[in-house]
């Protein structure tokens, strides 16, 4: 091992991180090289000094100052929220008022203006007063009729009240159409 190689492993040598073979080579080099021997001893002394340097301590009021800062931050956060609410309360109320006005206008328009206009679809009462208009049975009525007819066919000769009702209903439609 030469001095350059020893320089590269000097930390591992101090920390005892070398395998047996390398450690043996390093030991042989230290024995033979006074410069590296001195360098190793000097470095060891520096590291020992570093690790034993006196430790600092925080001042006695450190914790109370920290807690003050935390409380201050908490208060700031709360006041920021309140301030934000105060800052935005005016625009929020304006927007809410506008939305309410628009909603009311739409409601009034759909319930009063549209039904009275001539182009609008006539209401149920108006439709029933017009004699020439055909009346289509409501969807529910048709839905009720169809399955009963199928069932009546299956039963055969038994009298079926539903079938009669359906026929009556169809007659009514025909009469209205005439």
């Amino acid at each position: 091992m030469d001095c350059y190689s020893f320089d590269r492993i000097i930390s591992d040598y101090i920390d005892a991180n070398l395998n047996v073979k390398l450690r043996q080579e390093a030991n042989e080099h230290i024995e033979a090289c006074p410069r590296c021997r001195e360098k190793l001893a000097d470095l060891k002394s520096i590291l020992s000094k570093l690790s034993s340097m006196p430790t600092c301590k925080t001042r006695s009021d450190f914790e109370s100052r920290l807690m003050d800062r935390i409380n201050q931050t908490k208060e700031q956060k709360e006041s920021r929220f309140i301030r934000m609410f105060q800052d935005y309360s005016r625009p929020i109320s304006v927007v809410a008022a506008v939305m309410l006005l628009v909603a009311t206008s739409i409601f009034v328009y759909t319930s009063v203006v549209i039904p009275n206009s001539p182009d609008s679809i006539p209401s149920a009462e108006i439709r029933s007063m017009e004699p020439n208009k055909s009346i289509t049975p409501p969807a529910t009525a048709i839905a009720n009729v169809k399955p009963t007819l199928v069932n009546a066919n299956n039963v055969g000769s038994l009298p079926d009240t539903n079938k009669v009702e359906t026929q009556n209903y169809n007659n009514q439609i025909m009469m209205v159409n005439e």
Partner: peptide, 10 residues
């Protein structure tokens, strides 16, 4: 870095 740092410090 530890190896180079130690040598640099020295």
């Amino acid at each position: 870095r530890i190896n180079r740092g130690r040598l640099r410090l020295q």
